[in-house]
Computed example of a mutant assay.
Amino acid sequence: MGEHYFAPRPGAASRRRTVDLVLPDLHLRLETDRGVFSPDRVDAGTRILLETVPPPPAEGDLLDLGCGYGPIALTMARRSPQASVYGVDVNERALELARSNAQAAGLDAVRFCPADGIDPGLRFAAIWSNPPIRIGKAALHDLLLAWLPRLAPGGLAHLVVQKHLGSDSLQRWLDAQGFPAERIASRSAYRVLAVSPPTDSPPTERRTESDPA
């Protein structure tokens, strides 16, 4: 993996390249670089998330948590062009790439910024994330507890996590924290979890798991 992709200012020498994200409904060519998450190809977990989640809400504020160079946020924007899409990351190089990729894809209304660049009063109709598991359990829990409470009533978060990196224990932890979590897909040792806010409001429609482990 080299230098941690969650470093705010990666020290690795720049060596840019392009990767392709090809899904049934879209094709994005994305620029990547050393020092960011999965620079050589779109990560398998990201691809599985984008192939299995229900369509994002057509309107409202949508968030890609840990956006990297932008594949998840840009997919949300392409699928829901009337929504306001945000991507947050600590990695400044990744954010620069994401902005460039958005412009190249004609999706320059997507906003990529550090966490403190988001209005703290904003509530999200959907949060999609391939979360940075390797920051450690305590830091990951802090990250999720900072953002999951910002789901709007009836909103959903969708997270993709490898089984051997703790997807099942994370699901139990989310439930214990009051965020009901349901596995909606399993593929290639990845789990996709749908996480609801702790509210009595009815969630948006979920897709049932069609590819059991």
Score class of each variant (00 low, 15 high):
residue 137 K to Q: 05
residue 34 R to P: 00
residue 125 A to M: 13
residue 208 T to A: 15
residue 130 N to M: 00
residue 88 V to G: 00
residue 62 L to Q: 08
residue 122 L to R: 15
residue 89 D to C: 01
residue 187 R to Y: 07
residue 177 Q to A: 08
residue 16 R to I: 00
residue 207 R to L: 13
residue 75 T to Q: 04
residue 56 P to T: 04
residue 133 I to A: 00
residue 19 V to E: 09
residue 13 A to F: 00
residue 72 I to P: 04
residue 141 H to M: 03
residue 76 M to H: 03
residue 200 D to R: 15
residue 32 T to P: 12
residue 49 L to G: 10
residue 7 A to Q: 15
residue 201 S to P: 01
residue 142 D to L: 10
residue 200 D to N: 15
residue 108 D to H: 10
residue 14 S to M: 01
residue 6 F to G: 07
residue 211 D to L: 14
residue 195 V to Q: 11
residue 172 R to G: 03
residue 167 S to L: 13
residue 121 G to K: 14
residue 19 V to F: 06
residue 131 P to T: 01
residue 16 R to G: 08
residue 196 S to G: 05
residue 72 I to Q: 05
residue 165 L to W: 01
residue 58 A to R: 14
residue 178 G to D: 08
residue 10 P to I: 13
residue 181 A to T: 07
residue 89 D to L: 03
residue 187 R to D: 01
residue 153 P to G: 03
residue 168 D to R: 14
residue 112 F to S: 07
residue 166 G to Q: 01
residue 55 P to C: 08
residue 145 L to H: 11
residue 168 D to E: 15
residue 181 A to Q: 10
residue 95 L to K: 06
residue 76 M to T: 06
residue 84 S to K: 12
residue 22 V to Q: 13
residue 197 P to L: 14
residue 53 V to F: 02
residue 50 L to T: 06
residue 74 L to F: 05
residue 25 D to L: 05
residue 151 L to G: 04
residue 90 V to W: 08
residue 56 P to C: 06
residue 97 L to S: 11
residue 186 S to C: 12
residue 3 E to A: 08
residue 137 K to I: 07
residue 22 V to K: 11
residue 158 H to Q: 06
residue 21 L to G: 13
residue 42 V to P: 09
residue 135 I to V: 15
residue 6 F to P: 07
residue 90 V to Y: 09
residue 170 L to F: 04
residue 3 E to K: 10
residue 159 L to N: 00
residue 59 E to T: 14
residue 177 Q to N: 09
residue 120 P to Q: 10
residue 122 L to Y: 02
residue 69 Y to T: 01
residue 183 R to A: 14
residue 3 E to Y: 05
residue 33 D to N: 09
residue 173 W to Y: 14
residue 179 F to I: 12
residue 51 E to I: 11
residue 89 D to K: 01
